[in-house]
C-alpha cells in the first residue's frame, strides 16, 4: 500500500490556488494539514509532528512561501530542510576509545536486528577501519542466540567470545573485555538479549553490564518499520542507559521510516548506521538528508 508523497498531497491545494496567484493564510493552513498527514503516514510520532508542524508553519507564513511563485515546492523545501536539521544534519562516525579496546554495547527491543548488526559492525570495522574486533555473546535467553552469533563469526572468520547460557551476562561482558585486552582486540561488540523497555529486571541487567564494562558506545538498534511507540522505547532506553547512538535497521524495505525522526528527536543522539539487508555487508553510514527525502516520499 503505497502512501502518497508530500508533493502529491500538496497538489490538491496547488490546484485550488491556480489562477489566484497569491497564497493566503488558509492555503498555508491546508498545506500544513497535508504536511501533518504525510508525516503521520510515515510513522513520525504524533507529538513530534505537532511541534514540527508548528515550527514549519512559522517559516511558511513568512515571506519564503507566501511570496513564492511555486508555494508547494517551497513548502517541500522548507519541510525537507527542517527534517534534515531535526535529524542532526551531518553523518556521525562510531566512537573510538582513547585507550583500546573500544567497548560497544548493542541494545534494543526483541527482533530489532542487534545480533545481525553486531556481525555487520564487526565486518565494517575490519574492512573500513582496519580494526580487529571481538564479538561477545551476552544473550543467554533467546533460544540459539549464541549459535546465531557463532555462525556469523564463522561466516566472517571473526572471533566470538561466549561462556554458554548459564553465566550471568554481566560476567560474560566483563570477561569478554578482559579477553579482548589479552588478545589485543581494539573493539569489543557486546550483543545483548532483546528486551522490552518496560521490563525493569532486564533493563536493570543492562545498567549492570554498562557499569561493569563502561562502554564507549551504547547503540540502540531500532527497526525502521517501528510505529508510534518508537518514542517510548527510545526515551526509556536513553533514560536508563544514556545511549550514544542509534542504528536503524531494515531500511532496505519499503517503509518510510519516520521512526528515525522520533528517536532522534527524543534522545538527541545521532543515528550512526543504516541496516540495508540481511547479509553481513549490508551496513551503511546513515545520511540524515537522504532519510528526510525518503520520509517525504521524494
Amino acid at each position: 500500500m503505497a502512501f502518497e508523497s508530500l508533493a502529491e498531497r500538496l497538489q490538491g491545494t496547488m490546484d485550488r490556488m491556480k489562477g489566484r496567484g497569491k497564497v493566503n493564510e488558509d492555503d498555508v493552513k491546508d498545506m500544513m494539514r497535508e504536511v501533518r498527514l504525510a508525516l503521520l503516514e510515515a510513522d513520525v510520532n504524533f507529538k513530534v509532528v505537532k511541534q514540527f508542524v508548528k515550527d514549519v508553519r512559522e517559516r511558511a507564513v513568512g515571506q519564503e512561501v507566501m511570496e513564492s511563485l511555486t508555494p508547494g515546492q517551497q513548502v517541500i523545501k522548507v519541510v525537507n530542510e527542517e527534517l534534515t536539521k531535526l535529524m542532526g544534519g551531518e553523518q556521525v562516525k562510531i566512537n573510538t576509545a582513547s585507550r583500546p579496546p573500544t567497548v560497544v554495547m548493542m541494545v534494543g527491543l526483541q527482533g530489532a536486528g542487534k545480533t545481525t548488526t553486531t556481525g555487520k559492525l564487526a565486518l565494517h570495522l575490519r574492512k573500513k577501519h582496519n580494526r580487529k574486533p571481538l564479538m561477545a555473546a551476552a544473550d543467554i535467553y533467546r533460544p540459539a542466540a549464541i549459535d546465531q552469533l557463532e555462525t556469523l563469526g564463522k561466516q566472517l572468520d571473526m572471533p566470538v567470545f561466549s561462556m554458554g547460557n548459564q553465566v550471568n551476562p554481566v560476567e560474560i561482558a566483563t570477561k569478554a573485555v578482559e579477553q579482548a585486552k589479552e588478545d589485543n582486540h581494539d573493539y569489543v561488540i557486546v550483543d545483548t538479549a532483546g528486551r522490552l523497555h518496560v521490563d525493569d529486571n532486564l533493563m536493570d541487567e543492562l545498567d549492570q553490564i554498562k557499569a561493569a564494562v563502561n562502554p564507549d558506545e551504547v547503540l540502540l538498534v531500532v527497526d525502521a518499520m517501528t510505529g508510534q511507540d518508537a518514542v517510548n522505547v527510545a526515551e526509556t532506553f536513553h533514560e536508563r542507559l544514556g545511549i550514544t547512538g542509534i542504528v536503524m535497521t531494515k531500511l532496505d524495505g519499503d517503509t518510510r521510516g519516520g521512526a528515525a525522526i522520533s528517536v532522534k528527536a527524543v534522545t538527541g543522539q545521532p543515528i550512526k548506521f543504516a541496516g540495508m539487508g540481511e547479509k553481513t555487508d549490508a551496513l551503511e553510514p546513515f545520511h540524515p538528508e537522504r532519510m528526510a527525502s525518503r520520509i517525504l516520499g521524494m
Binding site: M1, A2, F3, E41, A42, D43, L109, G111, D223, M225, T226, G227, Q228, D229, A230, V233, G253, D254, T255, R256, G258, A259
Partner: peptide, 14 residues
C-alpha cells in the same frame, strides 16, 4: 505481525 510496527504493516499484509 509485530505490534510495534507502524503503517508498513499494511503493505506487509497486502
Amino acid at each position: 505481525l509485530d505490534a510495534t510496527t507502524g503503517q508498513n504493516a499494511l503493505s506487509q499484509a497486502k
